[in-house]
Simulated assay, not measured.
Amino acid sequence: MRPRIIFCIAVSCAILVVILLALVSPVTHKKSRKPQTRPWLALSLYIQQPQTAITTDPRPTSFDSKGAFIFHHTLTEGPENTSRVVGRAQGFIIPVEHFAHSAFNIIYLTFDMPEYSGSLSIQANQVHDKGREELTVVGGTGVFAFARGLAIFSESDHQLSMIEAMYHVKLRLKLE
């Protein structure tokens, strides 16, 4: 009989301690804080031809025999070819009708700046070559990890020539 009474007192004390801790715990009395959301990030950059001394192929991009659009360009802060290089723009796009919605149609913007180091993946499955395209940012790495948003590509007013096409890229990103 005596062990049962001790057991009942121990269980009662344990229950009382749990109830008291729940009532006087500092965690339950803290004000609820909204999760910290990061603001939208807006960037304005230019995609230019890489500056090389000798050019064997004057075309700004290359097409393989099946029609794939492959490019490797320089990403700069401004429209001038002397602007600071901040990264690279690379892509592989298959504009053929039955591949128009292919997962391969991605543009990668790689940044190499102290404040922005990483890359962005931009889905390019609806490119119509109308001079202005609104594409979807589908992810990234580094500072841009899990980025979502919009990338607007437009032909720049600062074209150097018909051969050296330049694009203005406006990014509106939501970083997680």
Rank of each mutant, 00 (worst) to 15 (best):
Q49K: 07
V86N: 07
S119I: 00
S154I: 03
T28A: 10
V18H: 13
T37Y: 01
F99Q: 02
P58F: 14
I15W: 09
G139F: 15
L16T: 15
M113A: 06
H158T: 09
F7Y: 05
H98R: 09
P114D: 07
F99P: 02
L171E: 01
E97C: 03
F144V: 10
C8W: 09
I47L: 14
F111A: 09
L150C: 11
P26E: 14
R2V: 08
M113R: 04
V27I: 14
G140C: 02
A53W: 09
A151C: 07
K174H: 04
G91V: 04
H158A: 07
L175R: 02
W40N: 11
F99Y: 05
A124F: 02
R84M: 12
L45D: 00
Q36I: 08
D57P: 09
V127K: 15
F99H: 04
I122Q: 14
G118F: 00
D112E: 08
H29A: 15
F63T: 03
K66P: 02
H98E: 03
R84Q: 11
E115A: 06
P50L: 13
K31C: 05
I93W: 01
I6C: 08
I106V: 08
S119V: 00
I70Q: 02
Q159D: 07
L45F: 01
I6N: 02
E176S: 10
F153P: 05
Q36W: 00
A165M: 14
I94P: 00
K30D: 05
A103W: 03
K174S: 04
C8H: 03
E134C: 12
S44G: 08
G139D: 09
T28P: 01
Y167A: 11
E77Q: 07
E97Y: 02
